[in-house]
Design a protein around this nucleic acid. Structure first.
Length: 114
DNA sequence: AAGGTGACTGGCG
DNA sequence: TCGCCAGCCACCT
């Protein structure tokens, strides 16, 4: 099991824990970067969560679109063309955007596994 | 090994 | 209430 000296064969790293937690977000719900960070045991690593999502491989099963910022806004870089996609995916799951384009976390937010 | 980057946040003016 | 600034973390040169 230590054949390949890649980082993917070691104990669960931060990114893996982040992916695992995001996979638990139920459809039609959203969670902030900071909350994910806290849920995996690193309360101040919100940027690390964004970094982890940015590093997602081509093939994966992580519902990245269910992660938004603390204000309920989509902070994914527009130039990647994914911002519109994220909104579409969320709306298809039933999540509603307010007049300012933000999601009300008190309504759609997911606070982690019970 | 040290410095730079970014899909974040909370605080302040 | 809103925008800006500095702090924070994990990763990548």
């Amino acid at each position: 099991m230590t054949d390949h000296p890649t980082t993917e064969h070691r104990a669960p790293r931060f990114r893996e824990r982040v992916y695992a937690m995001i996979r638990r977000i139920p459809p039609g719900r959203v969670t902030s970067y900071g909350d994910i960070a806290a849920l995996v045991g690193t309360p101040r690593a919100a940027r690390g969560v964004g970094s982890a999502l940015n590093a997602l491989p081509d093939e994966h099963d992580v519902p990245w679109w269910r992660v938004v910022n603390r204000s309920g806004n989509l902070t994914i870089p527009p130039h990647l063309g994914l911002r519109a996609l994220q909104r579409t995916l969320l709306e298809e799951e039933g999540v509603e955007f307010g007049p300012t384009g933000a999601i009300d976390l008190d309504v759609w937010g997911w606070d982690g596994p019970s």
